[in-house]
Amino acid sequence: MNKALFKANLKGNWLIAVIIMSVMYMYLAVMISMFDPESIEGLREMIKMLPKELVSAMGFEDLGTSLTTYLGNMYYNFIAIMFPMIYVIIASNRLVAKHVDSGSMAYLLSTPNSRLKIVATQAIYLISSVASIFLFLILAGIGTSHAMFPGELDTQGFILLNLVTLLAFLAISGIGFFFSCIFDDTKYALGFGAGVPIAFFVLNMLANAGDNISWVRFFTIFTLINPAEILAGSAFTPIAMLILLSIAALAYAGGIIVFNRRSLPL
């Protein structure tokens, strides 16, 4: 790991992470403030007026009765997936492929740092920035819930829910990073790096939407984030976490190895 490069990454990329976190926090705060055990019926009535398929696609079917299950369904089925996904797509592309495509990678490699060290630094930056987003979400979620509805949040369940989502994004960012490492052209790196996560996202919505096509759930890793099951303490959750972690490890390692070996168009 190279500290100077890590700092330069931070300087060039902190803004988009902060924007993503702000938007996510705004939604989270609104969602929490809308929680009211009494008026949750009203929310159900409102959701009933929307098309049924849309409601299931966004995972709003079962609102649950506690603050935690309510957040799990309202927030972690959709918003907590969409915004980190935008961040991961942009950041993974900027950290490697963009430097190769623009040629600035030549400068990084003309310093006495091995290719392995450079690309590993970029991977560490991406991983820690994704982790920061979820750490922020955990703290902000607990803090805001506590301020508005003291004692209502199942803190442990909420942390576990974030942890699983974080692991899913380590996997997704790993996939983006892998494509960022293997292509010469940002066009392809971005095409695949954005295409695959978006495909997962759309498949996840389809899988939620209809029983007759629920088999597509096997083709997206987002279905491994199942807030209702995670909060119910399902025995599958540790397995899901292990699968996500393995995908992340494979993707990051694959990207680093390929980048270290290949010819670069600099």
């Binding site: 330069a8 060039g12 040629g103 030549a106 400068y107 490699l109 003309s110 006495p112």
Partner: peptide
Amino acid sequence: AAEEIQRHVGYLPGEIAFF
């Protein structure tokens, strides 16, 4: 041995792309 070589090399690329 690129890492070791770069300690002793000054390189000017043909197409300059900076940060």
